[in-house]
C-alpha cells in the first residue's frame, strides 16, 4: 500500500511539473488582462439592445478574467447604465464559463477536439441560457 501511494505521489508530482509552465503563463496573462481591460471600457460598449448587448456581453465575458463576484458587480453596474438584461446575463455566463485566456492550457491538457467542442458548446449556451433566464425572469417576476 505504501509503495502504491509513493508511486501515485510521484506520478502526481510529474503531472504538476508538466503543467507548471503553462499554469504560470496563464497566471501572467490573467494579470495583464486584469490591468489592461477595465470595467469602464466595458460600459462604453453596451447600448441597451438585446442582440447587440448579448454579443458584446459574451465577447467581453469570454475575455474578462477574475473572481465570479466581479461579473455580478460589473453586471449590476451595466444594468444601471442601461445595458439590456439579456446582455448582462450573457456577460455573467460567459465570464464564468468561457476563458479565452486559459484556452491554451485547456487545449494542451484535454487535447484539441475536446477543448474545441466544450468551448463551442459553452459559447452557444451563453446565448441560449441568457435568453431562457431573462425570459423566465420577465414572465414570473
Amino acid at each position: 500500500m505504501k509503495q502504491k501511494l509513493k508511486a501515485a505521489a510521484t506520478g502526481t508530482l510529474k503531472s504538476l511539473r508538466m503543467i507548471a509552465p503553462m499554469l504560470l503563463a496563464i497566471i501572467g496573462l490573467i494579470g495583464l488582462f486584469k490591468i489592461y481591460i477595465t470595467p469602464e471600457m466595458l460600459r462604453t460598449l453596451f447600448n441597451g439592445t438585446a442582440l447587440h448587448d448579448m454579443l458584446v456581453g459574451v465577447g467581453f465575458g469570454g475575455i474578462s478574467v477574475g473572481q465570479p463576484f466581479l461579473s455580478y458587480i460589473i453586471g449590476g453596474e451595466l444594468l444601471k447604465e442601461g445595458a439590456s438584461f439579456y446582455g448582462v446575463t450573457a456577460f455573467i455566463l460567459a465570464f464564468v464559463t468561457l476563458g479565452v485566456v486559459q484556452l491554451p492550457m485547456e487545449f494542451s491538457i484535454f487535447g484539441f477536439r475536446f477543448a474545441l467542442v466544450r468551448n463551442l458548446l459553452s459559447l452557444l449556451f451563453s446565448f441560449v441560457l441568457a435568453f431562457f433566464i431573462t425570459y423566465c425572469v420577465r414572465i414570473f417576476a
Binding site: 503531472s15 509552465p21 503563463a25 495583464l32 491554451p104 494542451s108
Partner: peptide, 22 residues
C-alpha cells in the same frame, strides 16, 4: 497526461509580452 512543450512556448510568449509592455 501527454508530454508537450506548448507550456514552455506559452511561458516564453508571455514573458516577451511582459518585456514589451514593460
Amino acid at each position: 497526461m501527454k508530454k508537450n512543450h506548448s507550456g514552455l512556448v506559452m511561458l516564453g510568449v508571455v514573458a516577451l509580452l511582459y518585456l514589451v509592455l514593460g
